[in-house]
Write a protein that binds this DNA or RNA. Sequence first.
DNA 1: TTGCTCCTCACGTCACGTGAGGTGGC
DNA 2: TTGCTCCTCACGTCACGTGAGGTGGC
Lengths: 273, 273
Amino acid sequence: VLKIGEFSSLSGVSPKRLRYYDAIGLFHPAWTDPATGYRFYSPAQLPELYRILALADLGVGLAEVAGLVAGGDDLTMVLRRRRRELEAERTALERRLAAIHVALDRDEHGDPVGIVTRRVEAQPVASLTAAVDPGDHLEPLFDEIEAHVRDHDARAPRPPALVVHDRTGRRLSIEIVVPVTRPVPEIGRITNRMLDACAVASLIHRGGYDGLDRRRRRLRTWLRTTGLQPVGPLRIVYLQFSGDAALRLPAPFLAGSDASFVTELQQPIEAVP
Amino acid sequence: VLKIGEFSSLSGVSPKRLRYYDAIGLFHPAWTDPATGYRFYSPAQLPELYRILALADLGVGLAEVAGLVAGGDDLTMVLRRRRRELEAERTALERRLAAIHVALDRDEHGDPVGIVTRRVEAQPVASLTAAVDPGDHLEPLFDEIEAHVRDHDARAPRPPALVVHDRTGRRLSIEIVVPVTRPVPEIGRITNRMLDACAVASLIHRGGYDGLDRRRRRLRTWLRTTGLQPVGPLRIVYLQFSGDAALRLPAPFLAGSDASFVTELQQPIEAVP
DNA sequence: TTGCTCCTCACGTCACGTGAGGTGGC
DNA sequence: TTGCTCCTCACGTCACGTGAGGTGGC
């Protein structure tokens, strides 16, 4: 007995929304004039409408709301699920706020934003493990394993990486990993293994390697602020680097000078995305 | 020098997403083969891509990200705005969680969900103010003002309401408001006024008036839990009620028996939506 | 008759994901 | 040659809001 406009201002729901709810079968007028198509509503329908609105306000999807008002679904279960979803959203939201906090802080120091979480895939690699002193040159180790992989024609066109294992006393246990298309013979310190898939927080560094330590500290700060837990050794991925031409390294990853080096720090974390 | 699939697994960004970023002009391949349409990327592009991803992860819109990477916009300002938006989202999210908490609690008591926040419009009314004792019958007061409005042919087809003003000692200061199309002569306790537009928390009650007190308490609990502040006197709106036919009340709001009465409790609150 | 309200399409939103149907490169 | 990858449309998502163009009722 009320036209759509009257019922709209009575209920605070726009006519468009009322028509939409009618169209999807969620909430129909008390009567529709078949001649004109005019919709007529009664104030007695308000309890039903408000129940729908209350659920929609909680962010329950309209399809689910329909299931509830039809009486088939269990309200308690739907609300519990919705609560879990909202709690997950809250966690993500807090993380974003923390990340913005760090970014604003860094931004004022002139540093650009650039830390990202993502998944990395598993990949087969040849691996060379060694204990080194801080400051040691790692180039001979890279050359050793790259030459071995080259000699067995197994180089996969992916970037090499350094995995920083534990620190034993003053010495560092490190591992150089080189992507391969198939296993290579295991001789000396060289073995084959699978580099696991995992979620990582990733920061990209451009330029020479002297800046890397600062970036590592930055990544640690970021993890602490966003509350993400590290779960494995840091991986340093060489995306643009230089090496002896005789090693026949995959061309896409070679750069001319220090200034154009690109290095990615990947800190494995508990799964996020 | 990397095909889209290789660059995709290197960066963790899906090929679809890379093509999309290319299409909207946000991030282009280093080179596109005009003959085949194949896209080719370089690892040297990763810093740029990660900057984009980091901003997108914060929920910054891609149009805005484009403005930032182009260098035109100010990162600090964008991040500050984004923080404000996220803080608003957090407030809304906490409110929803609180509302779910109440709903689950009530649900287990067998009560359905149904509290909603919305805006109500301003409307001209005739108003009758009186001080009453709790338990007094208000019907004579309704009849008095409805008869006056009827006599001056000014009744608007909207529901009447009771505004519950302060409690002075044991007595209640109440106001009966009747929607009008134009002012009526002011005699005795009857005046004309505008009922203000405001945001309200609204609960709908179905059935006789004995259940109303419980609903009022429920509404108060809900407000406390969700952290919304009341800012004015409660309005009790009579959506389905009964009255003497001689009053010529607007038909859509009349109901037969107590069981089909519908009453809305509107508690004005600080603006939300 | 003039406004005002109502009606039904059709399109846009946001950042992609999901096929469909077809081609290029080893 | 066979797979595998790449390509370009076209459509779906979610809950409506925003017009466009036209009609009904006082």
